Amino acid sequence: MLATAGTRDASAPMRERVSAEEWAARVELAALYRMVHHFGMTDLIANHITMRVPGEPDHILINAYGLMYDEVTASNLYKITLDGDVVLRPDVDLGLNITGYVIHGAIHQARPDLHVVIHTHSAAGTGVSGMKCGLLPVSQHAALIDGRIGYHDYEGAAFNLDERERFVASLGSGNLMILRNHGLIACGQSCAEAFIGIYRLEMACKMQVAALAGGIDNALMMPPEALENTRRILIDHPEIGAGTLQWRALLRRMERIDPSWKE
């Protein structure tokens, strides 16, 4: 289950071992881990969020396997290749979970436009992933998802590198994917875009679970014209999908709660 942890690096602080650009990326990614924890989208030590290292397209940052998301900091992130080889190891006695680079490495490799990938196992997200109907237009949050959501059938725990091509094919040209009987994927060009994607998808799943509590025949679907009008907003106002304002507000909240993610 665990990948080789690699050779321990020099004892200098992580901030002194990386470029200023990489350190800034580490701080931003650590904040994203804290946000996903804050909004209850975690599954103990499972799952991953990855970010491409600035200027190093074949390297990504990822969490050590064994830390809770609210323990992730800029310093304790691993830097690895897309195939899981350790480039820079943090000063922690923890390794890597292979599923991180099977799923995430595949997406980063195939989609150079995407720099951040989030994977979750939330109750609502996994619940909808187990529904034959998939995500339904029963809420405005669902309507704000641009319609290019992918679906990937469950093949077992993601340990098989051969599944990578099928992951990428299922994602297609979109940024969101539902892993059947498994969970959710959200990607973006930035932490802000990836977070607003997973947040809206998670909220849409929660609202769908609530709406279907009375049975699917009692659920009110959004009219096609209303759905199209809402999605048109994302085309006419791309800043809504970028999540920039929300990201700034969330950083302020994380700062108030516990600024240790920046260490």
Rank of each mutant, 00 (worst) to 15 (best):
E16C: 01
R17H: 04
S19V: 05
E21P: 01
W23N: 06
W23H: 07
A25Y: 01
A25N: 00
R26L: 02
R26G: 05
R26A: 06
L29N: 04
L29I: 13
A30F: 00
L32D: 10
Y33C: 04
R34D: 09
R34N: 12
H38W: 13
H38N: 12
G40F: 11
D43S: 15
N47T: 15
H48E: 07
I49A: 03
M51Q: 14
R52G: 02
V53K: 00
G55F: 12
G55E: 12
E56K: 14
E56Q: 14
Y65S: 07
Y65K: 01
G66K: 09
L67S: 00
M68W: 15
E71I: 12
E71N: 12
A74Q: 06
S75Y: 05
N76W: 10
N76A: 11
N76K: 10
Y78I: 06
Y78F: 15
Y78Q: 03
K79A: 14
I80P: 00
T81W: 03
L82W: 10
D83P: 00
D85Y: 08
L88N: 08
R89K: 15
V92M: 05
D93P: 06
I98V: 15
G100R: 09
G100C: 13
Y101Q: 05
Y101M: 03
I103P: 00
H104C: 14
I107G: 01
H108C: 11
P112Q: 05
P112L: 10
D113W: 11
V117M: 04
H119M: 10
T120I: 10
S122F: 09
A123F: 05
T126G: 13
G130P: 04
G130H: 06
M131I: 10
C133P: 00
G134T: 12
G134L: 05
G134C: 09
L135I: 15
L135T: 14
P137F: 11
P137C: 02
P137R: 06
S139I: 07
A142Q: 08
L144P: 04
D146T: 11
R148W: 01
R148N: 08
I149P: 04
G150N: 11
